[in-house]
Write a protein that binds this DNA or RNA. Structure first.
Lengths: 327, 327
DNA sequence: TTGTACGCGTTATCAA
DNA sequence: TTGATAACGCGTACAA
């Protein structure tokens, strides 16, 4: 690794001068600057991030704590957050907790050790000790996808989303509505379910069946929906995520039901996968990419001590495709 | 941030002793150890990673350079790599280049600055200067998903995969076979195409049409397949990725073709999405998660200067589902 | 306009 | 068994 001393020697300057040109601070003559810049280029010099952070107190790194990266939703979120951070000159430290509290704790420790300047997180459990340690250390935090008590948050109104799901089906004349969802420990899923129940209650109804599972993979969701259909036969099924809805479509097909003729199905998220089925999935879209960008904006404002930005307006949008119809 | 001096003061020890217990090196009396461990716990002390890296020469961080995180395949790969690294006590520094050479260059710089102990990468372009800088800096590298000249690689044999795709269709009696793929600049996609062509040539055939596009999203793939079907009418279409194949299924449906009766479709990867369509997609599966784990294993061996492990056996597997049938 | 020297938080060497 | 201290690479007062 080439270091500042190597550049100084090569350019016939002192390390202080090299530091000045690298950081664009203080006065340096044009000739000296040119020599130093040349040396930097020739030796591919990179200031040691650790030493720099130690001196300056800022690592220019932001921790991004997500429950998973192999779940498409979070992969997309991670991607946009990372791109937004990059554009502002920050390095993302992306950590996937694999839904495990121990992982989360370990990662919080790693972030603290790395002296991250801030953290964007979608916590598995809101009571997680991880958040507390971060807060205690005075690290600015923005919660994403799901709110965290006492913290700035960038998240869609999942409860309202749940209402939209139910409302759409009610408008279509459905009265016998089932709900399939996963993972059951996910706060957004629970909030959507509450929204569904509330909207249905407003019409004097209740879900004819609710099936929540721990696993959110395709097969688990399909099995969940299949179990539901084995017990009751609603005219519509709400998936609390697109994945759950897609599982429901397959469960229906497995039982010889034609969607949407015999059964309407609606999902939530509008992931790319919502377009994969035939007919394509009707769903309530949440603006994942805007969420990521808004979270980064808010975090940077927090980090720079700027006045808190107003909460972002994150619109949910009903995307009517082919899996819902009149009863 | 609490530092080693705070612990020393609190436990009535010297920083040297604290360092010893924290790192489990050297002799420390039981009493002293207990006092220090208590202080560490009470103050939630984390050794500063930067200072540690500076002193010890190792950052215990591994760079993971991927073209994207919002593409499900890479999200899964990132996840497994990250988990495997975590299990071995390493921190992953995940960077998504968004397929841009400038991003890649910037990230390589950041990795060098962070003093990463090694790098796992799926390079956008094999001629990338990024690789050169990493090699020049003596950083151990393992290429993943696609080989890189002169480097250890963990990747499936995409050419053989291409042959399997064609072989399956030939065995089913197909003679008029089209190919749809994206992104066209992807080396794996090109290799699979070469494999397809080779296998077809062995039967005295050539693809009736090949359509490669730059974008690999659903809509782009669908449009590509639709254009192909507008020109010729093969009895089967090979997608060089599952995404392309799913696009083909939709293009076929859009033209009133029934899969697999009128048109067989086969994909590559076996992503979760391969199960979302009805009928479910026949595809050649590559073991993504094994790839990620094997890459980590190989990199750690390299980093520890161990003898190079033999190249991993990464089996491709034909998964016959519902989208292919006899002509 | 440039250079010297100190300190950031650790680890490791050497003495005690 | 413990402690004082010299690096590690950098940024920045301060001196020149």
């Amino acid at each position: 690794m080439t270091k500042i001393r190597d550049i100084a020697k090569r350019a016939g300057a002192s390390i202080a001068t090299v530091s000045r040109v690298v950081n664009g601070s203080g006065y340096v003559s044009a000739g000296m600057r040119a020599r130093i810049e040349a040396a930097v280029r020739e030796l591919d010099y990179r200031p040691n991030a650790g030493a720099r952070a130690m001196r300056s107190g800022s690592s220019r790194m932001v921790g991004v704590l997500l429950p998973a990266l192999d779940v498409h939703f979070f992969g997309i979120l991670a991607h946009t957050v990372e791109q937004a951070l990059f554009a502002r000159g920050y390095q993302a430290m992306i950590c996937s907790t694999a839904e495990s509290p121990e992982h989360e704790a370990a990662y919080v420790g790693a972030m603290l050790a790395q002296q991250v300047d801030g953290v964007i997180m979608a916590a598995v459990a809101s009571d997680g000790a991880g958040v507390g340690r971060l807060v205690a250390a005075g690290v600015p935090i923005v919660a994403v996808d799901r709110a965290l008590p006492g913290l700035a948050a960038v998240a869609v109104d999942h409860h309202a989303g749940g209402r939209m799901l139910a409302r759409h089906l009610l408008d279509l004349g459905h009265r016998a509505i089932g709900v399939v969802g996963a993972p059951d420990h996910s706060a957004p899923v629970q909030e959507r379910l509450a929204g569904i129940t509330a909207e249905l209650a407003g019409a004097g109804l209740a879900p004819v069946a609710v099936r929540l599972g721990a696993e959110h993979g395709f097969e688990a969701c399909r099995a969940l929906a299949d179990a539901l259909l084995g017990e009751v036969l609603p005219t519509a099924i709400i998936g609390t995520t697109d994945m759950a809805a897609i599982g429901a479509i397959h469960a229906a097909a497995g039982r010889g039901l034609v969607v949407p003729r015999d059964l309407s199905v609606i999902g939530f998220d509008d992931l790319p996968a919502a377009r994969y089925t035939i007919p394509q999935l009707t769903t309530v879209a949440q603006p994942v990419r805007e969420i990521g960008q808004a979270a980064v904006e808010r975090l940077l404002a927090l980090m720079e001590g700027k006045p808190a930005l107003p909460p972002p307006v994150l619109a949910l949008r009903l995307v009517e495709r082919g899996t819902t119809g009149r009863v």
